[in-house]
Nucleic acid binder design. Sequence first.
DNA 1: AGGATGATGAAG
DNA 2: TTCATCATCCTA
Length: 161
Amino acid sequence: MTVRLVETEAYLGPEDPAAHSARGRTARNEPMWGPPGHLYVYRIYGIHDCVNVVCGPGTKPEAVLLRAGEVTEGEELARRRRGPKPATARLAAGPGNLGRALGIGRDLSGADLLTGPVSLLLGTPPPAVASRPRIGVGYAGAWATRPYRFVIPNDPHLSRR
DNA sequence: AGGATGATGAAG
DNA sequence: TTCATCATCCTA
């Protein structure tokens, strides 16, 4: 199953109050302190599993949250996991939905993107990328309005319509 | 506008 | 051991 990403958010590390790594190193966020190119998956609101890619440089605990995408392959499988209700374009619209559609749960937190069951592919660059404030981080003070959310403008697969 | 639903981290 | 807090989604 493949998703083409259309929306991501950057979480910059301990100095970023919205990043999980800002509250110190714990068993949950342990993968953030590891090498780049690994998954960090956590559960939010008791329901949704959110998928992050751990980034560099080095072992600085930064990560990128995968927020939305278009299912480009394996729609049958995605729909089996998401159920019959959502419109096709909404199968992976939103972090919880994307994790669910891809079948990525916390069991894959820490998995290596090079050798594990999940891979990150590089495609042709999008025609345009815009940046906006991140979603759901209003508590983060001045950092809440920084434009660390990256979207392909007007893409129908974004997390909100 | 609000409820679902449970792990996490900090406090007692 | 309890408690507040969530990087959300859906129905209404």
